[in-house]
Each structure stands twice: as structure tokens, then as C-alpha cells.
């Protein structure tokens, strides 16, 4: 499978990365280089193989659950402290039209 320029633009848009028109060609070539190399996976017979999920070496253990208690929050200032555009008690973003 080889990516065309339109697909590269669509993926960049999906990933929210601004891609200037003059960068599309370079990105396309690099991605196709990597994807071409990845293509060798198709040669592996994976019939009936359960896909691995998670990184645990012996398969994933069951999920531990925490008790339902309020142990966090109450720190609006700390949550907002790193914001590039703090608006009082809120994060500010350009107006969103729904």
C-alpha cells in the first residue's frame, strides 16, 4: 500500500499537524519508505493468533479496582498553572462554533 498526497494531507489533518503544501512530498516519501518496510509483516502467517494487547509478558492480569472515594481535585490553581491562556478559573481557547 502506498500513500498518495491526498491521504498524507488527510492523515495530517486527522493528527492535527499543520502540513505546508511544500512539505507534503517529503512527508509522503518518508512515510512510504517506512510503510514499505513494514509491509513485510504481511508475510507472517497469523491465522488463529490472538492479538497481544498490553505489554505484560505473561498475558494481562485482571484489572485492579480502586475504592470509590474522593481523594483528588480541589486544586484548580495547580491545574490551571501551566495554561498558555488561563481565563480566570477556566482554560481559554478560540471560540468554538458547534
Amino acid at each position: 500500500m502506498s500513500l498518495d498526497a491526498a491521504t498524507v494531507r488527510r492523515i495530517a489533518s486527522l493528527a492535527r499537524i499543520r502540513l505546508e503544501e511544500d512539505e507534503v512530498g517529503r512527508m509522503q516519501a518518508e512515510l512510504n519508505g517506512i510503510l514499505g518496510w513494514i509491509e513485510q509483516l504481511q508475510a507472517v502467517d497469523t491465522e488463529g493468533v490472538e492479538p497481544m494487547a498490553g505489554g505484560a509478558p505473561e498475558g494481562q492480569p485482571a484489572m485492579r479496582m480502586r475504592e470509590d472515594a474522593v481523594t483528588d481535585g480541589g486544586q484548580a490553581d495547580a491545574v490551571l498553572a501551566n495554561a498558555p491562556d488561563r481565563m480566570g478559573a477556566y482554560f481559554g481557547v478560540p471560540k468554538v462554533v458547534e
Partner: peptide
């Protein structure tokens, strides 16, 4: 580059061929 590759291999129509396949080979 890696975000682009990652977005592509998870995107509709390619998930099975790339991501799912890779997780099977990983197994």
C-alpha cells in the same frame, strides 16, 4: 513522522492490515 504513521495504521480501513496484524505478530 511517528504520529503520522501511528494515525495512519489506526485509521479506518487500515487497522486490521497494520495494527491488528502487528499485535498478532507481537503475540
Amino acid at each position: 513522522r511517528r504520529i503520522m504513521i501511528g494515525t495512519y495504521v489506526l485509521s479506518a480501513g487500515y487497522y486490521d492490515a497494520y495494527y491488528l496484524k502487528a499485535q498478532k505478530v507481537r503475540a
